[in-house]
Protein backbone atom coordinates (compact mmCIF):
# COMPACT_ATOMS: atom_id res chain seq x y z
CA UNK A 1 0.00 0.00 0.00
CA UNK A 2 1.31 3.36 -0.94
CA UNK A 3 -0.60 6.28 0.37
CA UNK A 4 1.92 8.95 -0.56
CA UNK A 5 0.75 10.92 -3.54
CA UNK A 6 1.42 14.30 -5.02
CA UNK A 7 4.78 15.80 -5.83
CA UNK A 8 7.74 14.04 -4.29
CA UNK A 9 10.69 15.06 -6.43
CA UNK A 10 13.19 13.28 -4.21
CA UNK A 11 11.37 10.02 -4.76
CA UNK A 12 11.87 10.36 -8.49
CA UNK A 13 15.52 9.40 -8.30
CA UNK A 14 14.89 6.30 -6.29
CA UNK A 15 15.71 2.88 -7.74
CA UNK A 16 12.12 2.87 -8.98
CA UNK A 17 13.10 5.01 -11.89
CA UNK A 18 16.27 3.14 -12.69
CA UNK A 19 14.15 -0.01 -12.59
CA UNK A 20 12.17 1.03 -15.63
CA UNK A 21 14.53 -0.39 -18.28
CA UNK A 22 14.68 -3.58 -16.23
CA UNK A 23 10.89 -3.68 -16.17
CA UNK A 24 10.95 -3.54 -19.97
CA UNK A 25 13.47 -6.38 -20.06
CA UNK A 26 11.18 -8.31 -17.70
CA UNK A 27 8.29 -7.82 -20.13
CA UNK A 28 10.41 -9.65 -22.68
CA UNK A 29 10.87 -12.55 -20.29
CA UNK A 30 7.14 -13.24 -20.51
CA UNK A 31 7.79 -14.10 -24.13
CA UNK A 32 10.73 -16.29 -23.16
CA UNK A 33 9.11 -19.67 -23.82
CA UNK A 34 8.53 -18.47 -27.37
CA UNK A 35 11.63 -16.31 -27.66
CA UNK A 36 14.05 -19.03 -26.59
CA UNK A 37 12.10 -22.28 -26.42
CA UNK A 38 10.79 -22.28 -29.98
CA UNK A 39 14.07 -21.58 -31.81
CA UNK A 40 15.96 -24.16 -29.75
CA UNK A 41 13.25 -26.70 -30.29
CA UNK A 42 13.43 -26.11 -34.02
CA UNK A 43 17.22 -26.26 -33.94
CA UNK A 44 16.99 -29.55 -32.04
CA UNK A 45 14.64 -30.96 -34.65
CA UNK A 46 16.92 -29.75 -37.48
CA UNK A 47 19.83 -31.37 -35.65
CA UNK A 48 17.99 -34.67 -35.22
CA UNK A 49 16.96 -34.70 -38.88
CA UNK A 50 20.58 -34.06 -39.89
CA UNK A 51 21.80 -36.88 -37.65
CA UNK A 52 19.36 -39.32 -39.24
CA UNK A 53 20.09 -38.20 -42.81
CA UNK A 54 23.86 -38.32 -42.43
CA UNK A 55 23.60 -41.72 -40.74
CA UNK A 56 21.62 -43.07 -43.70
CA UNK A 57 23.38 -41.55 -46.72
CA UNK A 58 26.76 -42.92 -47.84
CA UNK A 59 29.80 -41.04 -46.62
CA UNK A 60 31.04 -38.27 -48.94
CA UNK A 61 34.46 -38.74 -50.56
CA UNK A 62 37.33 -38.49 -48.11
CA UNK A 63 38.36 -34.94 -47.26
CA UNK A 64 34.87 -33.46 -47.77
CA UNK A 65 33.35 -32.57 -44.41
CA UNK A 66 29.73 -33.30 -43.60
CA UNK A 67 28.45 -29.76 -43.43
CA UNK A 68 24.89 -28.48 -42.97
CA UNK A 69 23.29 -25.05 -42.74
CA UNK A 70 20.82 -26.02 -40.04
CA UNK A 71 22.36 -23.50 -37.67
CA UNK A 72 20.96 -20.56 -39.63
CA UNK A 73 17.40 -21.20 -38.42
CA UNK A 74 18.17 -20.03 -34.90
CA UNK A 75 19.51 -16.72 -36.19
CA UNK A 76 16.45 -16.07 -38.29
CA UNK A 77 14.29 -16.64 -35.24
CA UNK A 78 15.52 -13.53 -33.43
CA UNK A 79 14.41 -11.48 -36.45
CA UNK A 80 10.82 -12.63 -35.95
CA UNK A 81 11.07 -12.32 -32.17
CA UNK A 82 12.16 -8.70 -32.27
CA UNK A 83 9.62 -7.66 -34.84
CA UNK A 84 7.16 -8.73 -32.14
CA UNK A 85 9.13 -6.58 -29.69
CA UNK A 86 8.39 -3.53 -31.81
CA UNK A 87 4.84 -4.32 -32.86
CA UNK A 88 3.58 -5.63 -29.50
CA UNK A 89 5.86 -4.83 -26.56
CA UNK A 90 6.59 -1.24 -27.63
CA UNK A 91 2.93 -0.14 -27.79
CA UNK A 92 2.27 -1.87 -24.46
CA UNK A 93 5.27 -0.25 -22.76
CA UNK A 94 4.53 3.22 -24.13
CA UNK A 95 0.92 2.80 -22.97
CA UNK A 96 2.25 2.14 -19.47
CA UNK A 97 4.09 5.48 -19.35
CA UNK A 98 7.51 4.08 -20.26
CA UNK A 99 9.68 6.60 -22.11
CA UNK A 100 11.07 5.61 -25.50
CA UNK A 101 14.55 5.90 -24.06
CA UNK A 102 13.82 3.48 -21.21
CA UNK A 103 12.12 1.12 -23.62
CA UNK A 104 15.15 1.14 -25.87
CA UNK A 105 17.61 0.70 -23.01
CA UNK A 106 15.66 -2.23 -21.58
CA UNK A 107 15.27 -3.85 -24.98
CA UNK A 108 18.97 -3.43 -25.81
CA UNK A 109 19.86 -4.96 -22.42
CA UNK A 110 17.66 -7.91 -23.16
CA UNK A 111 19.08 -8.38 -26.67
CA UNK A 112 22.66 -8.34 -25.39
CA UNK A 113 21.86 -10.90 -22.68
CA UNK A 114 19.85 -13.05 -25.06
CA UNK A 115 22.64 -13.03 -27.66
CA UNK A 116 25.35 -13.75 -25.12
CA UNK A 117 23.48 -16.71 -23.64
CA UNK A 118 22.60 -18.20 -27.01
CA UNK A 119 26.19 -17.69 -28.20
CA UNK A 120 27.42 -19.47 -25.09
CA UNK A 121 25.06 -22.41 -25.64
CA UNK A 122 26.26 -22.76 -29.23
CA UNK A 123 29.88 -22.61 -28.07
CA UNK A 124 29.24 -25.38 -25.54
CA UNK A 125 27.51 -27.50 -28.17
CA UNK A 126 30.46 -27.00 -30.51
CA UNK A 127 32.79 -28.19 -27.76
CA UNK A 128 30.58 -31.24 -27.35
CA UNK A 129 30.53 -31.83 -31.11
CA UNK A 130 34.30 -31.71 -31.27
CA UNK A 131 34.70 -33.93 -28.21
CA UNK A 132 32.42 -36.61 -29.69
CA UNK A 133 34.10 -36.57 -33.09
CA UNK A 134 31.12 -34.94 -34.74
CA UNK A 135 28.48 -36.94 -32.86
CA UNK A 136 30.29 -40.14 -33.76
CA UNK A 137 29.95 -39.63 -37.48
CA UNK A 138 32.10 -36.62 -38.37
CA UNK A 139 29.12 -34.26 -38.66
CA UNK A 140 29.76 -30.51 -38.58
CA UNK A 141 26.42 -29.18 -37.42
CA UNK A 142 27.55 -26.45 -35.03
CA UNK A 143 31.13 -26.24 -36.29
CA UNK A 144 30.43 -24.85 -39.76
CA UNK A 145 34.07 -24.88 -41.00
CA UNK A 146 34.40 -21.15 -41.78
CA UNK A 147 33.09 -20.28 -38.31
CA UNK A 148 35.37 -22.43 -36.20
CA UNK A 149 37.93 -20.54 -34.12
CA UNK A 150 40.94 -21.74 -32.17
CA UNK A 151 40.27 -19.31 -29.34
CA UNK A 152 37.08 -20.05 -27.33
CA UNK A 153 36.39 -16.40 -26.54
CA UNK A 154 36.59 -15.56 -30.23
CA UNK A 155 34.38 -18.57 -30.91
CA UNK A 156 31.79 -17.24 -28.48
CA UNK A 157 31.94 -13.82 -30.17
CA UNK A 158 31.56 -15.37 -33.63
CA UNK A 159 28.37 -17.06 -32.42
CA UNK A 160 27.10 -14.12 -30.36
CA UNK A 161 27.60 -11.05 -32.54
CA UNK A 162 25.47 -12.24 -35.47
CA UNK A 163 22.60 -12.56 -32.96
CA UNK A 164 23.14 -8.90 -32.09
CA UNK A 165 23.15 -7.90 -35.75
CA UNK A 166 20.00 -9.86 -36.63
CA UNK A 167 18.22 -8.56 -33.50
CA UNK A 168 19.04 -4.88 -33.96
CA UNK A 169 18.37 -5.06 -37.71
CA UNK A 170 14.93 -6.41 -36.80
CA UNK A 171 14.42 -3.67 -34.20
CA UNK A 172 15.38 -1.11 -36.85
CA UNK A 173 12.89 -2.58 -39.31
CA UNK A 174 10.18 -2.53 -36.63
CA UNK A 175 11.03 1.07 -35.74
CA UNK A 176 10.76 2.14 -39.38
CA UNK A 177 7.34 0.47 -39.48
CA UNK A 178 6.22 2.27 -36.28
CA UNK A 179 7.63 5.63 -37.27
CA UNK A 180 6.97 5.77 -41.02
CA UNK A 181 4.28 3.12 -41.45
CA UNK A 182 4.02 0.57 -44.22
CA UNK A 183 5.07 3.12 -46.83
CA UNK A 184 8.29 3.68 -44.89
CA UNK A 185 8.90 -0.06 -44.84
CA UNK A 186 8.42 -0.26 -48.60
CA UNK A 187 10.71 2.65 -49.27
CA UNK A 188 13.38 1.21 -46.96
CA UNK A 189 13.12 -2.24 -48.57
CA UNK A 190 13.21 -0.91 -52.12
CA UNK A 191 16.04 1.44 -51.19
CA UNK A 192 18.05 -1.44 -49.77
CA UNK A 193 17.43 -3.54 -52.90
CA UNK A 194 18.42 -0.61 -55.10
CA UNK A 195 21.65 -0.09 -53.15
CA UNK A 196 22.49 -3.77 -53.52
CA UNK A 197 21.69 -3.65 -57.23
CA UNK A 198 23.81 -0.53 -57.79
CA UNK A 199 26.68 -2.12 -55.87
CA UNK A 200 26.43 -5.28 -58.01
CA UNK A 201 26.39 -3.22 -61.21
CA UNK A 202 29.39 -1.17 -60.08
CA UNK A 203 31.36 -4.27 -59.09
CA UNK A 204 30.59 -5.95 -62.42
CA UNK A 205 31.45 -2.79 -64.36
CA UNK A 206 34.75 -2.46 -62.52
CA UNK A 207 35.30 -6.21 -62.93
CA UNK A 208 35.92 -6.30 -59.20
CA UNK A 209 34.20 -9.59 -58.34
CA UNK A 210 37.51 -11.40 -57.75
CA UNK A 211 38.45 -8.65 -55.29
CA UNK A 212 35.12 -9.09 -53.49
CA UNK A 213 35.66 -12.84 -53.40
CA UNK A 214 39.16 -12.36 -52.03
CA UNK A 215 37.79 -10.03 -49.35
CA UNK A 216 35.45 -12.72 -48.04
CA UNK A 217 38.04 -15.46 -48.39
CA UNK A 218 40.91 -13.57 -46.83
CA UNK A 219 39.20 -11.60 -44.06
CA UNK A 220 39.66 -13.54 -40.84
CA UNK A 221 36.40 -15.18 -39.73
CA UNK A 222 36.53 -13.35 -36.42
CA UNK A 223 36.43 -10.04 -38.27
CA UNK A 224 33.87 -11.22 -40.80
CA UNK A 225 31.46 -12.77 -38.28
CA UNK A 226 32.13 -10.67 -35.20
CA UNK A 227 34.03 -7.46 -35.97
CA UNK A 228 32.09 -6.08 -38.92
CA UNK A 229 28.68 -7.36 -37.72
CA UNK A 230 29.31 -5.64 -34.38
CA UNK A 231 29.78 -2.33 -36.19
CA UNK A 232 26.68 -2.90 -38.30
CA UNK A 233 24.67 -3.87 -35.22
CA UNK A 234 25.76 -0.69 -33.43
CA UNK A 235 24.82 1.35 -36.49
CA UNK A 236 21.39 -0.31 -36.72
CA UNK A 237 20.82 0.25 -33.00
CA UNK A 238 21.78 3.93 -33.27
CA UNK A 239 19.51 4.62 -36.24
CA UNK A 240 16.69 2.65 -34.60
CA UNK A 241 16.96 4.82 -31.47
CA UNK A 242 16.87 8.03 -33.52
CA UNK A 243 13.71 6.90 -35.30
CA UNK A 244 12.18 5.60 -32.08
CA UNK A 245 12.46 9.00 -30.41
CA UNK A 246 9.56 10.31 -32.51
CA UNK A 247 7.68 7.06 -33.02
CA UNK A 248 4.04 6.77 -31.93
CA UNK A 249 1.88 3.75 -31.30
Amino acid sequence: MTAALGPAPSALDTPGRRRRPLAVARMQLVNLPIQLGMPWLILAIAFAVNLVIFALVPDPPAGEPKVTGGLLSIYLFVVVAHLVTMTQVFPFALGLSVTRRDFFTGTALFIVAQSAVQGLLLTLLLALEQATGGWGMGLHFFGVPSLVQQNWVLQWLVYTVPFLLFSFASILAGTILKRFGQLGMWIASVGLLLLGGIAAVLITWQQAWPTVGRFFAETPAALLFAGYPAMLAAFAAGVAYLFLRRATV
Binding site: M1, T2, A4, L5, A11, T14, G16, R19, R20, L22, A23, R26, M27, V30, F92, L96, S97, V98
Partner: peptide, 14 residues
Protein backbone atom coordinates in the same frame (compact mmCIF):
# COMPACT_ATOMS: atom_id res chain seq x y z
CA UNK B 1 1.76 -10.46 -16.73
CA UNK B 2 0.06 -7.18 -17.60
CA UNK B 3 -0.63 -6.47 -13.92
CA UNK B 4 2.91 -7.33 -12.79
CA UNK B 5 4.34 -5.09 -15.53
CA UNK B 6 2.13 -2.26 -14.29
CA UNK B 7 3.21 -3.05 -10.72
CA UNK B 8 6.86 -2.63 -11.70
CA UNK B 9 6.23 0.67 -13.45
CA UNK B 10 3.85 2.65 -11.25
CA UNK B 11 5.37 3.81 -7.95
CA UNK B 12 2.00 3.93 -6.16
CA UNK B 13 0.78 0.53 -7.40
CA UNK B 14 -1.45 -1.28 -4.92
Amino acid sequence: DALSAAGMLYPNWD
